[in-house]
């Protein structure tokens, strides 16, 4: 058994390495581009799943903007892409009310601070911005995985005080003027404002609430978020995640909402 000893040594070394503590993402992955943070690979447990769906979905490591996109950044986008300016945008891609609080097509005005998150943007506009910036919108699983982290651990749900913190935003009215981005305390991965500033678009928001059994009927009412569906939910205590799922299911891609913004993501280089 000459090969047994090296195997044992390797196993021991591995055990020691694992027990030495969590390996931080920045130790093992290429550094994130400026303004982005690394969300390491891991699993996402869908809030609601059908019997055919796995309990956990693997999520590859990716980069996520540290904070939501600001009015100033979106202004640069519409200047470079006039078809996304308020008076020119196709009603197919953004409903009336798109950037309604801006003073003009390329003017923010006094009520819209440059450093505050851009809101009243449709999914189409958010996605166009992301493409222009060389990025993309995060997927639901990616966004939720980033938002599941606490301040000091990867699992906010078990971090003392964090679940209560995650509910605070819901208890406060949206201010007339949204505060600047980046003021929120960074979470375990370094992302800010995920749970404390605005709702955020995700690329696949229109997958929310589709039940596997919707093939059997309209898929629009009966099988969505009814009592049975909620009873099958994995984590009944994660109310913010339920709220986000509910919100996503109510959206259409052209909608614009006064407290719905977005941030971008990027896949790791291959």
């Amino acid at each position: 058994m000459p090969s047994t000893l090296p195997r044992l040594v390797a196993a021991l070394a591995l055990t020691l390495a694992v027990s030495a503590g969590p390996v931080r993402a920045e130790d093992t992955l290429p550094p994130a581009p400026a303004g982005m943070v690394v969300i390491p690979a891991g699993n996402y447990a869908p809030l609601i799943r059908t019997k055919d769906e796995p309990e956990r979905v693997p999520v590859a490591a990716y980069y996520l903007d540290e904070r939501p996109v600001t009015n100033a950044e979106f202004l640069a986008f519409v200047r470079a892409n006039p078809k996304w300016q308020r008076s020119r945008v196709s009603p197919l891609f953004a409903d009336r009310g798109y950037l309604a609080d801006w003073a003009g097509d390329t003017e923010l005005g006094p009520r819209v601070p440059a450093a505050s998150p851009v809101v009243r943007v449709s999914w189409f506009a958010a996605r166009a911005y992301a493409a222009w910036a060389g990025k993309r919108l995060p997927m639901t699983a990616e966004w939720e995985r980033a938002a599941a982290a606490g301040f000091t651990t990867a699992n906010g749900g078990t971090e003392p005080g964090f679940p209560a913190y995650a509910l605070v935003w819901f208890s406060k009215p949206t201010p007339d003027t949204l505060p600047a981005v980046g003021l929120g305390r960074p979470n375990f991965y370094g992302a800010r404002d995920l749970l404390s500033l605005v709702w955020e678009w995700v690329d696949d928001f229109n997958t929310a609430m589709v039940s596997g059994e919707s093939r059997g009927d309209t898929g629009l009412e009966r099988t969505l978020f009814c009592g049975a569906g909620a009873a099958g939910a994995r984590d009944l205590t994660n109310y913010p995640a339920f709220m986000r799922a509910g919100l996503r299911s109510s959206l259409r891609a052209s909608y614009v909402v006064p407290n719905l913004g977005f941030r971008c993501a990027q896949s790791l280089p291959l």
Binding site: T50, D52, T207, G219
Partner: peptide, 13 residues
């Protein structure tokens, strides 16, 4: 709305 499930079937409206 549509979503591919684990069996590669699509749940859809």
């Amino acid at each position: 709305k549509y979503k591919q499930d684990a069996r590669s079937q699509f749940a859809h409206t």
